[in-house]
Design a binder for these strands. Structure first.
Length: 186
DNA sequence: GCGGTGATAGAT
DNA sequence: TCTATCACCGCC
């Protein structure tokens, strides 16, 4: 929002995340992800997400059981689930509860960032690491903020990326993209 | 296409 | 302790 000469960001309340993972994945398109590093906000507009539905969804980490790693997904909505994948890249998710979460897969940079088209690239660009796991996403240094809702005519649903091991669940249309964006993964 | 990299979970 | 697995990326 523009107010005078300042551009302000309004953190979204955690209650924004208290809905089904599918609905949250859709609702997060157009919202902002902000990470404050050394007093400087790094901001991107969310353009690609994936819903992971819970223990019954074989592509979801919580399908392997409730463990120290997946514990945060069983906690209250609106917290970050961050993990290291392939020993190299971090991925950031928004918890909805009951073992479910939404993976943020791509951003459109609103401050100078490197490439943000891909879950590993965006965490690198924003500086998000394991230390942010379980962080509540309604306050600094890592939070969601109000952006502009994406019209349904610009939203496309596809299969999730990189979950071929999940059998029939690999085919579920749980990836959401803003198809106007030039910052989508792949 | 293929290799790098390390936390995790479950087996031994 | 060991080993298989992995929501990926960058270079060939």
């Amino acid at each position: 929002m523009r107010r005078g000469t300042f551009v302000t960001v309004t953190p979204l309340p955690r209650s924004f995340c208290a809905r089904s993972p599918e609905r949250l994945a859709r609702a997060l398109l157009g919202q902002l992800l902000v990470h404050v590093v050394r007093g400087r906000p790094r901001v991107g507009r969310i353009v690609e997400t994936e819903a992971y539905l819970g223990p019954h969804d074989l592509a979801c980490h919580s399908a392997k059981g409730r463990t120290p790693r997946t514990e945060v997904m069983f906690g209250p909505p609106g917290h970050a689930y961050v993990y290291l994948i392939y020993g190299l890249h971090h991925c950031v998710n928004v918890v909805t509860g009951d073992g479910a979460a939404v993976l943020v897969r791509a951003l459109e940079p609103l401050t100078p960032l490197g490439r943000t088209d891909g879950p590993g690239r965006l965490t690198r660009a924003l500086g998000i690491g394991l230390s942010r796991n379980a962080h509540p996403l309604d306050r600094a240094p890592l939070f969601l903020a109000e952006g502009v809702t994406v019209s349904s005519r610009h939203v496309e649903r596809t299969e999730r990326i990189g979950v071929d091991y999940a059998g029939e669940w690999a085919k579920a249309p749980l990836r959401f993209v803003d198809r106007r964006s030039k910052h989508l993964s792949r």
